[in-house]
């Protein structure tokens, strides 16, 4: 494996709340090779979005960040603001969850693409506009010349997400973070957007972090999957391996919660009982313990480390792996 493009080391994110600091991300380590795809999966509030924002250095103002984020050899945590700004766009780019709110309502699509190209590549307006048309065409937007003059509200949700992707791709980033890129979209559009991301990723040999709450989304589209729960990575394995032999009961429960086409009608959909733990009051033991059907005394007493005791190439954090 080549030298990692991104290496996240012991990242912690603390958010101040009226009830005391909330540890949103709790000691996460990740590595990502150039051109590879990592899926981060977990339910709402598990810290996956905060982790991605930490990588982008776009955390809320009052959040406290610990650890190191090495990107192409530079530590993003200590990088001066101006260097960070130059990195965002040409090296690091992001597609956010909700295309209804992630584009500026008062600026044309064209302005929003062109300004990115101008900020980083120093193009003149004419060249940047030509490039904008190419980009919109590349992400599958019909009549791109007309679309450039339109405003976000004149486009459908799927079209807007395509525009957001075009903006993210505009400066040929080395790493694209897609934070729930299809959650706000119709099911019929979801697959199109995911296929588009996969196609562009391969074409540009760009690394991709795909954040989702849907294990089904990462199944065929990622090289590796990290499952997060309560701010920690609880299982991490190459994708095929994760789906053939998952070890963590939480991953199993997540997978069981996906409806299956071949199950008979009126089969009750298993849900994970209970709620995620209160992260302002961390548990001493495993954070999944209160909801886990395999839990015992050991789980209550100590947190299992994320490790690979069997040396089979998959990491998991559980005392009683499946």
């Amino acid at each position: 494996m080549s030298a990692p493009l991104l290496s996240v080391e012991g990242i912690t994110v603390d958010l101040p709340t009226p009830r005391g600091p909330l540890r949103a991300v709790d000691g996460v380590d990740l590595t990502l090779a150039p051109g590879s795809t990592l899926g981060i999966v977990g339910e709402s509030g598990c810290g996956k979005t905060m982790l991605s924002r930490a990588v982008l250095q776009l955390l809320p103002k009052r959040a406290k960040l610990g650890g190191r984020i090495l990107f192409a050899g530079r530590d993003l945590v200590t990088l001066p603001a101006e260097e960070l700004r130059r990195l965002r766009g040409p090296e690091l780019a992001v597609v956010f969850q909700d295309p209804m709110t992630s584009l500026n309502p008062v600026l044309t699509i064209g302005t929003q693409i062109v300004e990115t190209l101008q900020a980083h590549l120093g193009m003149d307006t004419a060249a940047a506009t030509r490039r904008g048309v190419e980009l919109l065409a590349a992400v599958g937007i019909p009549a791109p010349e007309q679309r450039l003059r339109q405003y976000p509200h004149q486009l459908s949700g799927g079209m807007r997400q395509r525009v957001a992707i075009a903006i993210a791709l505009s400066c040929e980033p080395k790493l694209l973070i897609a934070d729930e890129p299809t959650t706000a979209l119709d099911v019929t559009v979801q697959a199109q957007i995911l296929d588009l991301l996969a196609r562009e990723q391969q074409r540009r040999h760009m690394a991709l972090i795909l954040i989702t709450h849907d294990l089904g989304v990462v199944a065929g589209r990622t090289d590796e999957v990290a499952v997060m729960y309560a701010g920690r990575v609880v299982e991490r394995a190459p994708t095929p391996r994760l789906f053939t032999r998952m070890r963590m009961p939480y991953t199993e429960a997540l997978l069981a919660a996906i409806p299956k086409l071949d199950s008979p009608p009126h089969t009750p959909l298993p849900a994970i009982a209970g709620r995620p733990p209160d992260q302002t009051r961390p548990l001493k033991g495993c954070s999944f313990e209160p909801r886990c059907r395999y839990a015992d005394e050991r789980c209550r007493a100590a947190k299992p480390p994320l490790a690979d005791p069997e040396r089979l190439g998959g990491l998991f954090a559980c005392w009683h792996p499946l």
Partner: peptide
Amino acid sequence: RQDYIRTALAKGLATRTTIIRHALRN
């Protein structure tokens, strides 16, 4: 606090551009 301001920052726009072009107009 809006998402599109986060987008503008994530695109690597200068703070001044983000404030005047993206935030102030709204």
